[in-house]
Computed example of a mutant assay.
Amino acid sequence: MNERKAAHLNHSELWEQWKEHGDKEAKKQLIEKYLHIVEYVSGRLAVGLPKNVSKDDLASNGVMGLIDALEKFDYGRGLQFETYASWRVRGAILDGLRQGDWVPRSVREKAKKIEDAYQHLEQRYLRTVSDEEMSHYLDVSEKEFQNMIQEVAVMSIVSLEDPIREEESETRLSLLVDEKAKNPDHKVNEFTLRDALAQGIDKLTEKERIVVSLLYYEDLSLSEIAEVMSLSPSRISQLHSKAILRLRATLDKQRDLLMRKD
């Protein structure tokens, strides 16, 4: 099909030409039509990332995710491509970040130390622990603890997107959404982890719950949440980091229990 003819095709006709006839020009137009998804997702993920992470690299990985979505999407089922593509684009960008190893080892170790502290103290007291209690346990001042939280904030952007187990593709965030039916044993474990996640969210402070809700359910950016809550972006980032570290600790504890049962 020539470019002039393709230019006059409507949306459904472009999908038909691409999926049924493999028309490259139709595919090109679909890519151009949905580039705004890449711009939106990469823009949201860029918030809070270190300056050494190139926005162009994020967008480039996002485009690869968009192309992958176009390749695999079944347009005949009448589903929303935008929703499907957003997850593919997001996944491609996060994969690129992980492969680039953009978080220094020292930051990862610090995040793990805080996560373990949350898990230990909340298991001991069976409640949400305060910053003062965390500082005392870690043997640092409250100001130093706040600085630690701020330093590991960049890790929390992909924390819920990380695999529950290194050898698996299932992520913590996938526990929040319905998946295709799986075998009974897997389902039991999944429901157990989802219940643990729900309990973990209930134990967050009110402000932490609001941040998690606005970010992951209402799809607001950190800067938008800061405006809604009348707090600084850095404070929102800090609340988000603490919430994610608490939830990681809760899920990792439950995961270890399930592994011991297996």
Results as ranks from 00 to 15, higher is better:
92 A>T: 01
203 K>W: 00
169 S>Y: 07
145 F>Y: 12
136 H>C: 10
238 Q>S: 14
195 D>T: 03
64 M>G: 14
181 A>R: 14
40 Y>D: 07
50 P>I: 12
129 V>A: 07
78 G>E: 08
205 T>R: 13
222 L>S: 07
143 K>W: 12
38 V>E: 02
128 T>R: 15
138 L>P: 02
210 I>F: 05
253 K>C: 07
241 S>Y: 03
198 A>Q: 00
107 V>T: 11
202 D>T: 01
170 E>Y: 06
138 L>I: 02
32 E>F: 06
161 E>T: 04
197 L>R: 00
99 Q>C: 03
237 S>F: 06
249 A>E: 04
61 N>E: 15
177 V>S: 06
182 K>D: 05
17 Q>L: 15
116 D>H: 10
10 N>F: 04
248 R>F: 03
147 N>S: 13
203 K>M: 03
235 R>H: 11
42 S>T: 15
16 E>I: 15
80 Q>Y: 09
114 I>G: 02
260 R>E: 15
234 S>I: 12
102 W>M: 12
25 E>W: 12
117 A>G: 02
83 T>G: 11
165 R>D: 04
131 D>W: 07
66 L>H: 06
226 A>P: 00
50 P>S: 14
218 E>K: 15
219 D>Q: 14
227 E>H: 11
111 A>H: 05
252 D>E: 14
73 F>R: 04
221 S>V: 04
67 I>L: 15
16 E>H: 14
116 D>Y: 07
191 F>C: 04
3 E>P: 02
217 Y>R: 15
9 L>T: 03
121 L>S: 01
172 R>V: 00
74 D>I: 14
160 L>A: 03
9 L>Q: 02
144 E>D: 10
143 K>G: 03
154 V>D: 02
229 M>A: 06
173 L>D: 00
239 L>N: 07
233 P>I: 11
135 S>N: 06
25 E>H: 13
23 D>K: 13
243 A>L: 07
214 L>A: 09
212 V>Y: 10
102 W>G: 05
58 L>G: 08
173 L>C: 01
12 S>W: 13
189 N>R: 08
43 G>L: 11
256 D>I: 01
202 D>S: 03
71 E>W: 11
12 S>E: 13
80 Q>H: 10
253 K>R: 10
110 K>R: 10
216 Y>R: 09
24 K>D: 10
132 E>P: 00
242 K>S: 09
12 S>F: 13
214 L>V: 01
182 K>Y: 04
243 A>T: 07
75 Y>K: 08
59 A>H: 03
86 S>K: 13
161 E>V: 03
63 V>Q: 14
113 K>F: 09
17 Q>M: 15
252 D>S: 02
100 G>F: 08
74 D>S: 11
5 K>S: 09
184 P>L: 12
27 K>P: 00
56 D>P: 00
224 E>P: 01
237 S>C: 05
185 D>S: 13
205 T>V: 03
39 E>G: 01
48 G>N: 07
99 Q>G: 02
95 D>N: 05
35 L>T: 04
202 D>Q: 03
7 A>D: 06
46 A>W: 11
124 R>E: 10
120 H>L: 11
12 S>D: 10
210 I>Q: 04
124 R>Y: 09
227 E>F: 11
247 L>C: 01
